[in-house]
Amino acid sequence: MSREPAVTARPTPAVLARVDVAPDAIHTAAPTLRIHQLTASYGERVAVRDVSLECAPGRVTAIIGPSGCGKSSLLRCVNRLHESVVDARVSGAVHLDGRDVYAHDVDPVEIRRRIGFVSQRPTPFPMMSIRDNVVAGLRAATPRLDARALDACVERTLRRVGLWDEVARRLDDDPASLSGGQQQRLCLARALAPEPRLLLLDEPTASLDPLSTQRVEELVYTLRGDVTVLIVTHNLQQAARVSDTTAFMLDGELIEAARTRALFTTPADARTEAYITGRFG
């Protein structure tokens, strides 16, 4: 490399070391996610072009790339949210533990129940209390639930996202009274309450302050092993900090996917190198 890469685009060695602790040794109930030749479009515009990607069970896979490169669309194809848009089309396959979520007999609603999803901006349901927000997904899946079981779940999940101490005494309040960071963690709790084995995060910290961002990243780190995580981010340091594998997308195509450290230190493709060294994007 003739040029000194931008310091900010480099993960610190300490973080890398932490991520690389024997990832292959993980034994987990989390599923393998295989995306196979996936193409997604909105009307005439193709957002994702022939992408194949495998996410190992219980690991964190980050997708990076400039805005508009199709990374969010790819994510939204996994839980079949993409097709809820008028004019949207998908072709290809997404295998979750060997089963194609796009198979003809699969109910998208059923699939989405098993996959957690958190979007870029906090989306707590207004007109619902904090407590009801946490268990909204559970309620959708099983109509009648024991009140005590629900309460236990609310506490467990809110503790998991580090929100319990902050909201324990106002569970019946409107989520509008929470700060943006708290709202986003509430949304994480809502996604985690049904105990999904696959979690999709679409730039979950894009609208958060540094402290809230750190909390969310710590949570993602603790999920490793139990949950397969696919996280979209435009923050390279974040990808480096939290992920085991990183995939780089450009103009709807997957340029390369590799171990995170390998991708950031010795990218195989010149375009990847250009992006992570900050030459564009």
Binding site: V109, R112, I115, F117, S119, A140
Partner: peptide, 10 residues
Amino acid sequence: ALREAALALG
């Protein structure tokens, strides 16, 4: 986004 959050929750 609110609509999608609900759809994504199943």
